[in-house]
C-alpha cells in the first residue's frame, strides 16, 4: 500500500513537471547549447572534442541543476500554498510517503531529461568526430555522476521546500550547490588555517555536499579514465547524502503544522 501510494505521488509529480512549459524551455536551451558546441570547437582548432565534451556535459549538468531547483522549490511549498496538500494528507497518505513520492517523481523527471539530453549530446559528438571510440564509455560515467549530483541536489531542494519560501529555497539550494562544487577548496582553506576555525571549516567542508568529486567532466574530456572505486564510492555517497537530506525533510515535515 505504501509503495503504491509513493508510486502514485511520484507519477503525479512527474506528470506535473512534464506538463509544465518551463521544463521544455529549459530543455530546449540545454539542447541548443549542446548543439552549438561544434561552433565553439571550430574556434579552437584541434580541440573540437574537448570543447564539445566540456560544453555539452556542462550544459547537461547546469540545466539539470536549474530544473531540479526550480521544480524542487515548489514541490512542498506550492502544495501548501495552494492547499492541494490538504486533500492529499487527509487521506491515508503518511507525510513521509508524500516526501518520498515527491522526491522520486522529480528524480525520475530529471533522469528522463538527462537521458534525452545525453542522446542529443552523443548525436552531436558523432556528427563532429564522425566516430565513437570505446573510450567514449567514460562519457557515460561522467553523465552518471551528473545524475548522482541531481539526486543530491533534488533532495536538498526538497528539504528546503519543507520549511522555506520558494525564493529562499532557491537561493539556499543554489548556494549549497556552489559551495559543494568548491568543497575541495574549502578543505584546502581549512588546511591552511589553524585553531577553532580549522575544525569549523573542516567540519563544514564535510557537511556540504561534495559535488567536486562528482565532477569528472574535465577528466573525461582529456580521455583520462575514471577509477571503478570512485564510481562505487560516489554512488554510495550520493545515496547516503540524499538519504540524510530526505530524512531531515521528513523530520521537519512530520511535525509541521499546516497553517
Amino acid at each position: 500500500m505504501t509503495a503504491s501510494r509513493i508510486w502514485h505521488i511520484s507519477f503525479n509529480t512527474f506528470r506535473e513537471a512534464v506538463r509544465d512549459r518551463v521544463l521544455y524551455n529549459l530543455v530546449f536551451f540545454a539542447l541548443l547549447m549542446v548543439g552549438s558546441a561544434p561552433l565553439f570547437g571550430q574556434i579552437s582548432v584541434g580541440l573540437e572534442r574537448i570543447v564539445l565534451v566540456n560544453l555539452g556535459l556542462a550544459a547537461i549538468s547546469i540545466f539539470g541543476v536549474v530544473i531540479a531547483i526550480f521544480i524542487g522549490i515548489g514541490l512542498v511549498s506550492k502544495e501548501i500554498e495552494r492547499k492541494t496538500l490538504y486533500t492529499v494528507l487527509s487521506r491515508p497518505v503518511r507525510r513521509w510517503e508524500f516526501i518520498l513520492g515527491k522526491y522520486f517523481g522529480l528524480a525520475g523527471t530529471l533522469a528522463v531529461n538527462t537521458f534525452f539530453m545525453a542522446v542529443g549530446f552523443f548525436a552531436v559528438l558523432v556528427f563532429v568526430t564522425k566516430s565513437l571510440a570505446a573510450s567514449d564509455a567514460q562519457l557515460l560515467i561522467a553523465i552518471y555522476f551528473i545524475i548522482l549530483q541531481f539526486l543530491v541536489i533534488t533532495a536538498i531542494t526538497l528539504l528546503f521546500s519543507t520549511f522555506s519560501s520558494p525564493l529562499l529555497s532557491a537561493l539556499f539550494a543554489f548556494g549549497l550547490f556552489l559551495i559543494g562544487s568548491f568543497a575541495d577548496d574549502l578543505r584546502g582553506l581549512a588546511r591552511m588555517v589553524e585553531g577553532p576555525q580549522h575544525s569549523l571549516l573542516m567540519g563544514l567542508s564535510y557537511i556540504v555536499p561534495n559535488f567536486g568529486a562528482m565532477n569528472v567532466v574535465s577528466q573525461v574530456a582529456h580521455q583520462q579514465s575514471v577509477p571503478a572505486t570512485l564510481i562505487l564510492h560516489n554512488t554510495l555517497y550520493a545515496f547516503l547524502y540524499a538519504a540524510a537530506a530526505l530524512s531531515a525533510a521528513t523530520l521537519i515535515f512530520e511535525n509541521r503544522n499546516l497553517k
Binding site: R15, E16, D20, R82, K83, T84, T87, S90
Partner: peptide, 12 residues
C-alpha cells in the same frame, strides 16, 4: 475532506 476555497492540480 473539502478544504476552504480549494485549488486543485490544475494541470490534471
Amino acid at each position: 475532506f473539502l478544504p476552504e476555497q480549494p485549488y486543485f492540480y490544475d494541470y490534471l
